Amino acid sequence: MKRALFLILLVLSLSSCDDIIEVVDISQNTISVLAPTNTSVLAEGDITFSWDVLQDATQYKLQIATPTFENASQILLDSTITATNFSKTLELGNYEWRVRAENSEYQTLYITQNFSVEE
């Protein structure tokens, strides 16, 4: 009886190996930013941040700071989203935003862009 149970467990453990999902390493990939790009000058109001889909990413980390991340007076957004765009109302000023792709095991480097909002 013990031997039969052992054989059943052995067969189950061997067959479940095929069900293991390998997570793709995206850490060397780069996100392509669509907007706003570096040194863009935009009108006050809703600003749409967008980038291309990165294959094998399941979510994106999006951050917005003013005036820069290195010299931030305020972090306006620090969010994880599944879409490839996000809108936020911004007032006049200088901003930096960055985005990285993530999956359950890996993440890319951030891509950082700066822009200003003027009248």
Rank of each mutant, 00 (worst) to 15 (best):
K2R: 14
K2Y: 11
A4T: 11
L5C: 13
L5E: 09
L5Q: 12
I8P: 01
I8M: 06
L9M: 15
L9P: 02
L9W: 04
L10P: 05
L12V: 00
L14M: 08
S16Y: 13
C17M: 12
C17A: 11
I20G: 02
I20S: 03
I20A: 12
I20F: 14
E22F: 12
V23Y: 03
V24H: 08
V24R: 04
D25C: 04
Q28M: 13
T30E: 13
I31P: 03
A35K: 07
A35E: 03
A35V: 06
T37N: 13
T39P: 09
S40D: 14
V41L: 09
V41Q: 06
V41A: 15
L42M: 08
A43D: 07
D46I: 05
T48G: 08
F49K: 09
W51V: 11
V53R: 02
V53S: 13
V53Q: 08
L54P: 07
L54Q: 06
L54F: 06
L54Y: 00
Q55K: 09
Q55E: 14
Q55D: 15
Q55P: 13
D56E: 04
T58D: 01
T58L: 04
Q59L: 05
K61D: 14
L62M: 10
L62F: 15
I64L: 10
I64Y: 00
A65E: 06
A65C: 08
P67Q: 01
T68C: 06
E70R: 14
A72E: 08
S73G: 12
Q74R: 09
Q74C: 05
Q74D: 06
Q74N: 09
L76E: 08
L77V: 01
I81H: 00
I81Y: 00
T82E: 14
N85K: 07
L90W: 06
L90Q: 08
E91C: 03
E91D: 15
L92C: 01
L92H: 05
Y95N: 11
E96N: 04
R98F: 03
V99I: 13
N103A: 02
Y106G: 01
Q107G: 06
I111N: 09
I111L: 15
T112L: 07
Q113A: 14
N114E: 11
N114C: 05
F115Q: 01
S116K: 05
V117P: 01
E118S: 04
E118T: 04
E119D: 11
E119L: 13
